[in-house]
Design a protein around this nucleic acid. Sequence first.
DNA 1: AGAATTTGTTACGTTACTGAAACGATACCA
DNA 2: TGGTATCGTTTCAGTAACGTAACAAATTCT
Lengths: 128, 128
Amino acid sequence: MASPPSSSGPSGAPPLKPSQVLALWHRVLVSALNRSLPDLTQRQFALFLEVYLAPPPHTVRGLAKTLNMSKPAVTRAIDRLEKLEFVRRKTDERDKRSILVQRSVKGSVFLREFADMAAEAARELDRS
Amino acid sequence: MASPPSSSGPSGAPPLKPSQVLALWHRVLVSALNRSLPDLTQRQFALFLEVYLAPPPHTVRGLAKTLNMSKPAVTRAIDRLEKLEFVRRKTDERDKRSILVQRSVKGSVFLREFADMAAEAARELDRS
DNA sequence: AGAATTTGTTACGTTACTGAAACGATACCA
DNA sequence: TGGTATCGTTTCAGTAACGTAACAAATTCT
């Protein structure tokens, strides 16, 4: 039998070619700039996504290690995201030295917004 | 006839679901941080991709409009990319007020590097 | 109990990005 | 040929990011 477009894994999505990922990245970045979303730095955005897409708990130290950032950098990124109300700080009751970075309503809205925009960009890409 | 995994456009890639694009974005950002590539700002990277993926010519004014940036911001982004030797400035001989932002060897290498990394992230994503 | 470790934050100095406005240089127009 | 428009850059002042080092607070070890 003829093989489908490409071997497709459990996600149902076939591997994207490098050039396709590039085009997608390009479209999303430009689209984000034009919508003038709150412009987060790469690190801030990576941290944001880590909090929302990776399983909790998320501590400063853990985030610093995962994202290869210094602890102060993580603290300040959280400061910024907290000002935007995209995440919340909660002290860990079982070890009051640690804080748990948690999701928030506003952050979820922003995430959805970005996801839809990115998916739309991917769709346009598919059409071209 | 039965449809393939999803309707697939000319690119051969089916539309990605929002959650898939998010996961991809997440992986690529984290991966980029850990490889400590030259960390460009979102705007710098968007400009870089615009130069490499959109058809020339690329002028400061044109980039500013497309990317919704101020002209000084574009100038400085080009400064940074030029220092990295990722792009070159060339004055337009037909209108010496304009400069043409052009691709370079080092930039192409960096682009390829990023593309491969992103594609690899997409592949891992597919496997999970 | 006291010492040592670990947590996140703050202080410090440096670097880099930002937009508005002013600028020289080139092109166009009357 | 002078006036005007447009190009990219620079200047300016303000803001934000960075890493190192020092820090208080909480926990653990002895």
